[in-house]
């Protein structure tokens, strides 16, 4: 199975970093979105297996986008990649199924391990 991955981040640099990390190590179909609003549109068309989502973004933040995606796809796998590591924010989200966190800047191996473990569950 060729995994479909959506990277959502307003930072072009971070999107490139995540894309390079994945492309170096696996054959995946990758699409990108610049903010939460764009992510919703791309998600509906692309139907990704896994979403890497920033929190602090213009137009629509990652938490709102996560909730909106979950409203029409309750099983969506969403990995929050964020510099906003506040327990008061992450506590509630961590209790949701199929939601994980990676701190920015991320370690490529950690990101790949997480990706691989989710892909194994999908196969």
């Amino acid at each position: 199975m060729k995994p479909k991955i959506l990277i959502v981040d307003d930072s072009q640099f971070t999107r490139l970093l995540i894309r390079k990390c994945i492309e170096k190590n696996m054959n995946a179909e990758i699409k990108e979105a610049n903010d939460g609003h764009e992510a919703l549109k791309v998600f509906k068309d692309f139907e990704p297996h896994i979403v890497f989502m920033d929190i602090n973004m213009p137009k629509m933040d990652g938490i709102t986008a996560l909730k909106k995606i979950r409203s029409f796809n309750k099983d969506a796998i969403i990995v929050m990649v964020t510099a906003l590591e506040q327990q008061s924010i992450t506590r509630d989200l961590k209790s949701l199924p199929n939601v994980a966190f990676i701190a920015k800047p991320f370690d490529c191996n950690a990101l790949l391990n997480m990706l691989t473990s989710y892909i194994k569950r999908l196969v």
């Binding site: 930072s11 971070t14 602090n56 510099a83 906003l84 590591e85 506040q86 327990q87 924010i89 920015k104």
Partner: peptide, 22 residues
């Protein structure tokens, strides 16, 4: 921009966690 985000995010998150606030 991302470097600024990481440094500011690191500080602000630590202050928020210490205060148990957002």
């Amino acid at each position: 921009q991302e470097l600024g985000n990481i440094i500011i995010g690191g500080f602000i998150s630590e202050i928020a966690n210490y205060m148990n606030s957002t």
